[in-house]
Amino acid sequence: MFSRRLRNLIMAFVVISISSLIILQSNQSFGAKQKWKYTGNAGCKCHLSKGCFEGEEYKERLHSHTFDERLKTDEEKKDPECLRCHATAYKMKIKRGKSKKGSKNFIEDVACEACHGPGEAYVKVKKNYQKKGKDAFKKLLKEDPMMARKVQYDTGLYVAGINKYKTIKEQCLECHWEDVNDKNKCPKCDKDEKGKPIVMKFKKYFKLDDHRDHDTIDDVLPKVDKKKWKGYLEQDPLFKTKPSNAK
Rank of each mutant, 00 (worst) to 15 (best):
D179I: 06
A111N: 03
K142C: 02
G40N: 02
E108Q: 08
A136P: 11
E143V: 04
W229Y: 14
E76R: 08
K126D: 00
I217S: 05
P145E: 03
L140P: 10
K204A: 12
V199C: 14
N181C: 02
K35H: 01
I162V: 15
F202K: 12
G102A: 11
L173W: 08
Y205L: 07
V224T: 01
W36E: 01
K78D: 07
D68F: 09
S20A: 15
C52S: 14
Q130D: 12
A121S: 13
R7C: 12
D236Y: 10
D79R: 04
K95S: 14
M11A: 14
L9D: 00
A246E: 00
R5E: 06
E56V: 01
V14S: 09
P222S: 05
A148E: 01
K45R: 12
K183N: 08
G117S: 07
F239M: 06
K59N: 05
S29E: 01
D74N: 14
C112A: 01
V180G: 09
I16V: 14
P118I: 08
G51K: 10
Y232T: 02
K242S: 11
Q171T: 05
L62T: 09
G31V: 02
N163L: 09
D219H: 11
A246V: 08
P197N: 05
G55W: 12
T155P: 11
K132E: 10
G40H: 10
D135E: 14
K77C: 05
V14D: 04
M147C: 08
D154K: 15
H176C: 06
D190Y: 09
G161D: 01
P145Q: 09
F13S: 11
E81P: 00
K77N: 04
K72F: 09
F53R: 11
E193N: 11
M1V: 02
N163Y: 07
